[in-house]
Amino acid sequence: MIETLIKIFLFGAVVGGIWGLVASGFSLIFGVSRILNFAHGAAFVSSAFLAYALVNEGYSLYFAVSAGLMLAAVIGVVVYALTKPVRDREVMVIIVTLAFALLVQQVLLVLFGDRGVSIEPFVEGVAEIGGVKVTHMRLLSLALAVICLTALEVFITKTNLGKKVMATAQDSRAAMMVGIDIEKIFLFVMVLSSLLAGFAGILYAQIFAVNPEVSLRALIYAFAIVILGGLGSLRGSIAASFIVGYILVITITFLGARWSEFVMLLTIVAILVVKPTGLFGVEE
């Protein structure tokens, strides 16, 4: 029994941590610029694929990972540029970002085929915690995710730039009036969020494997998590990531793997029916 609990705790946390990196960025972009960035999954997979390709070409792992992150940042810039002219039309924002996400997915499909690729892990080996075997890589990625998310929180609440970001999120017009260059803030948030997603993608490819289809999957998860946590609430989406992680793992343990996604989606729909603004959201 204890073993089962440890297993649920650890595995749920790892899944939650990775999706937390994706969802927090998605949430941040929406909070600041009111853009539903459907291309968020593109950064997730592209960075992983580039890192994989470079490792295969013989470059070192860390160089490959840095290059992957660079690509994620570039995708952030592209999404910023694409959405700028249509920012005030919500339908168009959704359509343009979604189309871009699918474009990237198809390009990856043409380049790499539909099969999964994995990146060699930062650390090898297996640890045993309370009788449960856990790979070092999983523990490391949990630690990295927690560090990134904490750093993000500190950055937003404590630093000067972070406060500008928050101010823009609360009221972009007022922020503009007090002299904040909100375009710069938008761009910055877009790049930062894409970096987080790209990093998550690389961790994901080390523990699991990515294929082009995963981009849509990452988007759906981020999406579901952000709705669950409440649109625009950074803390809400981080909390919701872990909730989703635990729902997944508990379902796998007690109900069977086949139900995992169905139960997750159903729970989210159920929560939305009861509390349509999500767990931590505020009604607009």
Partner: peptide, 19 residues
Amino acid sequence: DVKIPRGYSEYEQLILEAE
């Protein structure tokens, strides 16, 4: 006898259970 959906990735738990 475990059934898994398309795109499933959490095999580690299943491997541990099998062990």
